[in-house]
């Protein structure tokens, strides 16, 4: 009977398991933050490109978004990790495979590129929420196209899309758990590792769940502060 299971919550803090979880949290935070930096810069760039007046650039932007959105993140991760080095040819392949912590770098880049496609869609939606008059006004003051985007449209659009970006920022921490499938030692991996050493997977995964919940609360709080600081005067408050 299943009631024979004896809970042992000590696996969450007892030596060395508590240390495992702390190391995992640190890696999760690094994956999320660096991945987010890539996602935000690349995503805004691609979102901008998708509404640019140049057809070829728009086409590249659309292709990027469609490809990254329609393939599961885990498949992308496997492709970059296992097939990626092979794309560079025999000679370089072995050099790349011998990089220490390759899985970690691949996870960050893959996470950033995947999330960028989602950020790009939100950015585009933000642009279309800005009225045409702003574009005309910017151009009529003598700004060039790049200047208009840099000084008028992008700062405006970014503030409009802070709420959906908050969701994406939360999602990147959740998606970073998938990096465990290529052996990155983040929180989910560590909770699984504790299970394989103690057979107390229920306690360790419950602990990991609480860690993600706490992380989520911190992110929501920080983004809330950011949102109120950057509020555009005269817009309807939330």
């Amino acid at each position: 009977m299943g009631l024979a299971y004896e809970f042992d919550w000590g696996v969450l803090w007892r030596n060395p398991y508590g240390m495992y979880l702390l190391q995992g949290i640190w890696v999760t935070i690094k994956l999320g933050l660096i991945g987010w930096a890539i996602a935000l810069s690349l995503g805004v760039l691609i979102g901008t490109v998708r509404i640019s007046p140049w057809r070829w650039l728009r086409l590249i932007g659309t292709a990027y978004v469609e490809i990254f959105r329609n393939i599961p993140f885990m498949v992308q991760l496997f492709f970059w990790y296992y097939a990626g080095p092979m794309l560079f040819g025999e000679a370089l392949q072995y050099r790349i495979n011998s990089i220490i912590g390759l899985n970690y770098y691949v996870a960050i880049i893959a996470l950033g590129m995947y999330t960028a496609s989602r950020v790009a869609e939100h950015t585009r939606a933000g642009f279309s929420a800005i009225s045409r008059d702003h574009y005309y006004a910017a151009l009529s003051t003598g700004l060039t196209h790049p200047q208009m985007y840099r000084h008028v449209i992008i700062p405006y659009a970014l503030r409009i899309i802070i709420p959906p970006l908050t969701t994406e920022f939360l999602t990147i921490f959740k998606n970073s758990s998938i990096a465990m499938t290529i052996g990155v030692l983040e929180t989910t991996f560590m909770s699984y590792k504790i299970d394989s050493e103690t057979f107390h997977g229920l306690e360790s995964t419950t602990g990991a769940c609480l860690i993600y919940l706490a992380l989520g609360l911190v992110v929501v709080r920080l983004m809330g502060i950011l949102e109120s600081r950057l509020k555009i005067p005269g817009m309807i408050g939330r």
Partner: peptide, 9 residues
Amino acid sequence: NIPLLLVIF
């Protein structure tokens, strides 16, 4: 607020 991977586990 929890990764799907953890829910599966």
